[in-house]
Computed example of a mutant assay.
Amino acid sequence: MAVFLDVSEDATDTITHSDDPGRIGAYFHYLHVILVAGIIATAVGNDLVLAHPHDAVKTAYALVLSAGPAIYLLGSAIYKKVVYGVVPASHIAGVVLLTTIVPLTSYVDLLTVGWLTTIIMLAVSFWEGRLLRKHRSDQVARQGAH
């Protein structure tokens, strides 16, 4: 929960210190649409997995299962670009991995694909969390040095 609060505070700081806060605020508004679209698509994919865990993976299912998390990661990457000025490598790696599992889905069932997408998202989360904690500790160290 603290991570969400920190990111929210950082976004507020970015907006209030911008030369054009209205434009930056609008970016955040539109970015949330992308994030929610990714969440909804991910939920649809999870419903498919829960309803038919051992079914063969159809192409449309594979695309939904990988596209939902990928859309979310892309939205989050853009959000972090606006707030912090960088696109997290963890998010790009996650999107690449989500894209590369699509061709593999014809060899496994829906449950396996669900697990793969979950593992990828967890890996991105841990990677990003580690970097965020390092960034926060560096900020505290810099503030203590002043």
Rank of each mutant, 00 (worst) to 15 (best):
H17V: 08
L73E: 14
M1W: 04
D138W: 05
V33D: 14
Y107K: 10
A2Y: 06
A67E: 04
I39A: 11
H146T: 08
S76H: 07
P103E: 12
H29P: 00
I34G: 01
A11K: 07
L97Y: 11
V108T: 10
V113D: 01
R142N: 05
D10N: 12
G68F: 00
W127S: 15
V96T: 06
Y72R: 03
V3W: 09
T100K: 12
L31C: 00
L116H: 03
H17Y: 11
L73W: 13
A89W: 15
A77K: 00
L5C: 04
A51G: 07
V113C: 10
A37Y: 02
K81H: 13
W115P: 02
A56K: 09
Q139D: 07
L104Q: 14
H29F: 07
G25H: 10
M121L: 14
E9V: 06
R130H: 13
A93D: 09
Y79E: 13
T14R: 15
V102L: 05
V95E: 02
L50T: 08
S8Q: 06
T105W: 07
G75Y: 00
T99V: 12
D138H: 09
L110W: 01
Y30S: 12
M121Y: 11
P53A: 08
L98D: 02
I40Q: 00
P69T: 12
L73C: 15
V102N: 01
Q143K: 09
V113S: 03
L111K: 05
F28H: 12
A51S: 13
I78Y: 02
L104Y: 14
G94S: 09
L50V: 10
R23P: 00
H91G: 10
S76R: 04
T117P: 02
P69M: 13
I34F: 08
S137Y: 06
N46G: 07
N46P: 00
S125Y: 13
V57R: 01
